[in-house]
Write a protein that binds this DNA or RNA. Structure first.
Length: 766
DNA sequence: GAGCACTGC
C-alpha cells in the first residue's frame, strides 16, 4: 500500500512540472482501447510512453555492456518506470551483486551477442533464474522492438514466485513490467516486458503462433528436468531458430550434462557459473541393504543419537511407506528419549497428495531441548521426490537416500502407464545430496554401496517423453504444424512403437485421418487441455444431448480423486459415498456428487463444511469447477452447444453412458464368464479386476473404464456399465468384427450384431 | 476389497 501511494504522488508531482514523458503517456492512453487491452496484442501495443526510457538512451539493443546496465541499475530513477528507486530496491541490488552469476555478467553478454542459442549451466544458488532474464532485459530493451522476453519453468509455483521476486528486484509492480502466465491465471499487461511462464503454457501459446513471434528471446529454465513440454519446446525452438534468425534462445540447466544440450543445439556455446552451496560429505553402506525402509529408519535414529544439531531429510517412495516410516521413527525416538536422554525429534511426512496445510508444517522450527541445557531437538522430514525439486526446505543438514523413487513407465504394447519403484539416477542422487548443503556443510547417507552408485545407477533419469503415452503429444505436434513426426528432431526420440500406438489411437478417435493428417475433430480436440479421448468425448457430447453433464464428468476426471477416505474413518467415508452411488457406475456417481456439491453451494451452505461432512475433497471439487469453467469457455468459443436431456427423461443417464462410449470405446472390458470377477480388456486381452473402490455391485458383462492401474493386481478404475450394441453403433471403425481375433469377445459381439440386425429387419418388415 | 512419484495444459 505504502509503495502504491508514494508512486502515485510522485507521478502527480512529475506531471505538475510538465514532464514531457508524462504528456506522451496521456496521449497514448486515449488511443485504441480495444487493442490496448487485448493481451494477445501485447507485443504490438505502442508503448512509446515508456517513462524514463530515456535513462537507457545511450544503450543500443543487443550491443549493451554490463557496465551500462549496472549504471542504469544504480541510477536514482527506475529506467523501466521513470519512478524514483525505492530504498528497498538498493538493498536488494546489493545482494544481487553478491550472487555468483553477477561476476560473469559481462562474459554472458558477450556470448549472448555473438550467438543465437546459448547453453547456460548454473548450479543451485547461482542466481541464474532471477538474474539472467534481467541481464537479457537490459540488453534486449524490449520497449524498443515490442517483443517480450519469456522464461519458462516446469512448475506453476516457481513461475509465480520467481516473477514476484524479479518484480521486487526491478522495483516494479508484479503484472506490470514483469508478469507471469500460468493456466487459469495470466498476470501480464500490455506493459509487460519480461514474462515468466510454465513450459506447458508456452507450448499451448505456440499452437496459435507457430513462430512464437511475440518473443525476441526465450529462456528455457530447468531444462535438465526434461519435462515433456521442455523437450517439445526444445525441438520446436530448434526448428524456429532456422526461420527466425532474430530469435535468441537460452537453455538453462543445473547439471553438467550440458554437453548433451550443446551438441543438440548444433554446438551452441556454453557458459557455466558455479553455484553457492556448502560441501556435503557422502557416506555409502559397505554392503547392499535388503530392506531399505528398515535401513532408513535405523540410519535416521543413528543420526539422531550421534550427530550434532541439524535437521534430517529422508527420501522414500510413496505415501504408505512414508506414513509407516514416520510411525516407526516416532516410536523409536520416544524410547530413545526415555532410555538414553536423547533430544526431542518431530517427524513430518511430506508427499504431494497431502493437503497444503499439512505440507506447510514441515517449515515449522525444530523443537527446543526438553529441558534447559538438554540435547537439542531436531525435525525429520520423510518425503517423496517432491523434496528433490519442487519444495526446498532450509536447515536440512542430513540427507538419508535409500536410492529409490516411484517412476512412471509406459508399455506401448499393452498401452498401460504405471508407477514402479525403481532405482534413481546419479543425477537424482546428487540432487538429493545437495539438499543437505543449503545452509551449512552437511552429510548424505546413501543406503547403497559406492560400487552400486558408480556401476548400477544410470546417469540421468529417462526423460518423460520416453516414459509416456504420447497420444496427447502427437496431437499437439500435429496442431503445431509438425508434418513429419518421424524426422522431428527430438533430443531423445521415443520408441517407434510408442509413436505408432499414438497415431493409431488418434486415428481410431478420428482425430487423424488415414494419411495421418489432422481432421477437423482433431484440430478441435487439440484446443482442449485434455487427453484426446476426453476431448473427443466432450466435443461429441452434444450429439448425445448431454454436453452439460459430460462437461462436468470430464472436469471431474481431470482432477485428483474427489473421494476422501481417511484411515481412521473408512467405513463412514464409504457410507457417505454410497449416498451418491449410481447403480450404473462410477462416472455417474462422480456426477451425482458434483451436483450435490453445487446444490449445497447454491443453497448458500458452508461448502467446506459440507464437503468435510460428506468425505469429499473441497480442494479437488473446487479445482474441478475451475477446470469446468475453462473447458466451458473453450466450448463456447468454438460454438459447441451446451444441453441436457431433461432429468426425468428415462434416457437422462443412458445418454450420458452412450456419450462416454464416444471417447472411451477403446477402454472396455468384458466379463470372463458368469459369476467371475475377472474381466478381459477388448483387443488387448489383459485380465483385469474392477477396482475395489467402485460403486458397481452388479456383475455387469460389459464395462467401460477410465484408467488401468497396475498395483498388486491389474485393476480398471472408475467404471461404468455399458451395452455392447452401443460399441458397434458408436465406434464401428474400432468394432469392425472382421478385425477381431477369434475368441469370446468376437463371439459375443457377433451375437450382439446379429441381434441388432434381426431387430432392424423386424422393424423394417413392419 | 485396495491405494496415490511428480508435474503441466
Amino acid at each position: 500500500m505504502a509503495d502504491e501511494n508514494s508512486r502515485a504522488s510522485s507521478k502527480k508531482r512529475a506531471s505538475a512540472e510538465g514532464d514531457s514523458e508524462n504528456n506522451k503517456r496521456s496521449k497514448v492512453e486515449n488511443g485504441d482501447m480495444a487493442d490496448k487491452y487485448n493481451p494477445y496484442l501485447a507485443h504490438t501495443y505502442e508503448n512509446n510512453d515508456m517513462e524514463g526510457s530515456s535513462l537507457l538512451s545511450g544503450m543500443k539493443r543487443r550491443e549493451t555492456t554490463a557496465r551500462q546496465a549496472e549504471r542504469a541499475e544504480d541510477g536514482e530513477y527506475n529506467p523501466w518506470t521513470g519512478q524514483p528507486h525505492s530504498q528497498r530496491y538498493f538493498g536488494i541490488l546489493k545482494t544481487r551483486r553478491d550472487l555468483p552469476v553477477h561476476k560473469q555478467r559481462a562474459e554472458f553478454l558477450e556470448m549472448y551477442h555473438n550467438t543465437q542459442i546459448l547453453v547456460f549451466v548454473g548450479e543451485t544458488g547461482s542466481g541464474k533464474t532471477t538474474q539472467i532474464p534481467q541481464y537479457v532485459l537490459y540488453d534486449e530493451l524490449p520497449h524498443l522492438n515490442k517483443k517480450l522476453i519469456a522464461c519458462t519453468q516446469p512448475r506453476r509455483v516457481a513461475a509465480m514466485s520467481v516473477a514476484q521476486r524479479v518484480a521486487d528486484e526491478l522495483d516494479v509492480k508484479l503484472g506490470e513490467e514483469v508478469g507471469y502466465s500460468i493456466r487459469f491465471e495470466n498476470k501480464t499487461t500490455p506493459r509487460t516486458l519480461l514474462k515468466y511462464m510454465t513450459d506447458g503454457q508456452l507450448l499451448r501459446e505456440s499452437m496459435h503462433d507457430h513462430d512464437m513471434s511475440r518473443y525476441s528471446c526465450i529462456i528455457l529454465d530447468e531444462a535438465h528436468e526434461r519435462t515433456l513440454a521442455t523437450d517439445i519446446l526444445m525441438a520446436l525452438l530448434k526448428q524456429i531458430s532456422e526461420r527466425r534468425k532474430d530469435l535468441k534462445i537460452i537453455i538453462m540447466s543445473a547439471t553438467l550434462d550440458a554437453q548433451k544440450f550443446q551438441k543438440y543445439f548444433n554446438n551452441a556455446p556454453l557458459l557455466a557459473v558455479p553455484g553457492r552451496t556448502h560441501p556435503v560429505e557422502i557416506f555409502y553402506t559397505p554392503e547392499a541393504e535388503r530392506d531399505y525402509v528398515e535401513a532408513a529408519v535405523r540410519t535416521v535414529l543413528q543420526i539422531h543419537a550421534t550427530e550434532p544439531e541439524g535437521d534430517i531429510l529422508l527420501f522414500l517412495t510413496g505415501e504408505e511407506e512414508i506414513e509407516d516410516a514416520c510411525r516407526r521413527i516416532s516410536l523409536e525416538t520416544d524410547e530413545m528419549i526415555r532410555e538414553s536422554d536423547a533430544g526431542p525429534m518431530v517427524v513430518y511426512p511430506l508427499y504431494g497428495t497431502l493437503p497444503p496445510q499439512q505440507q506447510q508444517r514441515i517449515f515449522e522450527k525444530a523443537p527446543a531441548p526438553l529441558r534447559k541445557g538438554g540435547r537439542p531437538g531436531r525435525k525429520c522430514i520423510v518425503s517423496t521426490n517432491i523434496a528433490e525439486t519442487s519444495l526446498t526446505i532450509d536447515g536440512i543438514v542430513y540427507v538419508v537416500d535409500p536410492g529409490f523413487s516411484k517412476q512412471k513407465i509406459y508399455n506401448p504394447r499393452s498401452r498401460v502407464e504405471s508407477l514402479l519403484v525403481s532405482p534413481i539416477s546419479k543425477a537424482s542422487a546428487q540432487q538429493r545430496a545437495g539438499r543437505a548443503g543449503r545452509t551449512r556443510p552437511g552429510k548424505c547417507f546413501r543406503l547403497y554401496t559406492e560400487k552400486a552408485f558408480k556401476k548400477e545407477l544410470i546417469e540421468q533419469t529417462y526423460p518423460e517423453i520416453l516414459r509416456s503415452n504420447l497420444s496427447n503429444t502427437v496431437l499437439e505436434l500435429k496442431k503445431l504444424g509438425v508434418e513429419d513426426l518421424v524426422h522431428f528432431d527430438l533430443m531423445d526420440p521415443p520408441a517407434p512403437e510408442t509413436m505408432m500406438r499414438a497415431l493409431e489411437e488418434l486415428n481410431y478417435l478420428a482425430c487423424l485421418d488415414d494419411d495421418g493428417e489432422l481432421t477437423t475433430l482433431g484440430g478441435l480436440a487439440s484446443e482442449f487441455p485434455l487427453d484426446p479421448s476426453l476431448a473427443v468425448m466432450l466435443i461429441t457430447s452434444p450429439e448425445f444431448y448431454c454436453s452439460n453433464e459430460i462437461l462436468s464428468i470430464t472436469s471431474l476426471l481431470s482432477v485428483p480423486q474427489i473421494w476422501v477416505r481417511p484411515n481412521s474413518s473408512r467405513k463412514r467415508a464409504d457410507e457417505m459415498k454410497r449416498q451418491f452411488a449410481h447403480p450404473d457406475g462410477d462416472h455417474l456417481t462422480l456426477l451425482n456428487a458434483y451436483h450435490a456439491f453445487k446444490g449445497a453451494e447454491n443453497r448458500g451452505e458452508d461448502v467446506k463444511k459440507w464437503c468435510h461432512e460428506h468425505f469429499l475433497s473441497f480442494r479437488h471439487l473446487s479445482s474441478a469447477d475451475n477446470v469446468r469453467n475453462q473447458l466451458l469457455r473453450i466450448m463456447e468459443s468454438h460454438g459447441l452447444e451446451l444441453m441436457s436431456t431433461p432429468f426425468n427423461d428415462k434416457n437422462y443417464y443412458v445418454n450420458i453412458r452412450r456419450a462416454l462410449v464416444s471417447g472411451f470405446f477403446m477402454q472396455v472390458a468384458m466379463r470372463e464368464s458368469t459369476n467371475s470377477k475377472v474381466y478381459k480388456t477388448i483387443k488387448d486381452n489383459q485380465l483385469v479386476m474392477i477396482h475395489p473402490s467402485t460403486v458397481l455391485d452388479n456383475p455387469y458383462e460389459w464395462v467401460l473404464y477410465n484408467e488401468f492401474v497396475l498395483t498388486s493386481k491389474q485393476y480398471v478404475r472408475t467404471v461404468t456399465n455399458i451395452r455392447p450394441e452401443w460399441l458397434l453403433e458408436i465406434a464401428p471403425q474400432y468394432y469392425n468384427l472382421e478385425d477381431f481375433e477369434k475368441g469370446e469377445v468376437k463371439t459375443a459381439l457377433t451375437r450382439v450384431a446379429e441381434k441388432v440386425q434381426r431387430r432392424q429387419a423386424m422393424k423394417g418388415g413392419r
